[in-house]
Amino acid sequence: MNDQQIITIEPGKRGGKPCIRKMRITVYDVLGWLASGMSHAEI
């Protein structure tokens, strides 16, 4: 699976930021959570 199958950019969703497909969670949110110490299971 490549990143194009997981990440989408839609102008009307979350200000055009890259999001996880079919969700309103941005890639920046996920990276921030990982950087703060959350585990994959917690996310």
Score class of each variant (00 low, 15 high):
23 M>P: 11
2 N>V: 12
7 I>L: 00
37 G>T: 04
36 S>L: 03
39 S>V: 07
31 L>E: 13
15 G>T: 12
30 V>T: 11
17 K>I: 02
6 I>W: 09
19 C>S: 04
28 Y>R: 14
3 D>S: 13
2 N>M: 12
23 M>R: 15
30 V>N: 12
2 N>T: 12
35 A>E: 04
24 R>S: 11
8 T>F: 13
21 R>A: 13
33 W>I: 04
14 R>V: 12
38 M>K: 13
38 M>L: 14
11 P>N: 01
21 R>I: 05
28 Y>D: 14
29 D>A: 09
4 Q>I: 05
40 H>A: 15
3 D>G: 10
19 C>G: 02
32 G>E: 10
7 I>M: 01
18 P>N: 00
1 M>D: 04
32 G>K: 08
15 G>S: 05
32 G>P: 06
15 G>F: 04
26 T>C: 10
35 A>T: 02
28 Y>I: 13
8 T>Y: 08
34 L>M: 09
21 R>F: 09
17 K>E: 12
1 M>A: 05
29 D>K: 01
2 N>P: 06
16 G>K: 07
4 Q>T: 04
8 T>L: 01
24 R>V: 03
32 G>M: 10
19 C>M: 11
29 D>C: 04
43 I>K: 01
40 H>V: 15
20 I>C: 11
27 V>Q: 06
36 S>I: 11
26 T>G: 10
35 A>D: 05
17 K>P: 08
33 W>L: 12
4 Q>W: 02
4 Q>N: 11
17 K>H: 02
32 G>V: 00
40 H>D: 14
7 I>P: 10
10 E>K: 09
2 N>E: 13
41 A>D: 13
16 G>D: 02
6 I>S: 06
41 A>G: 05
19 C>D: 05
43 I>A: 07
8 T>V: 15
18 P>F: 00
35 A>V: 00
11 P>K: 11
23 M>Y: 14
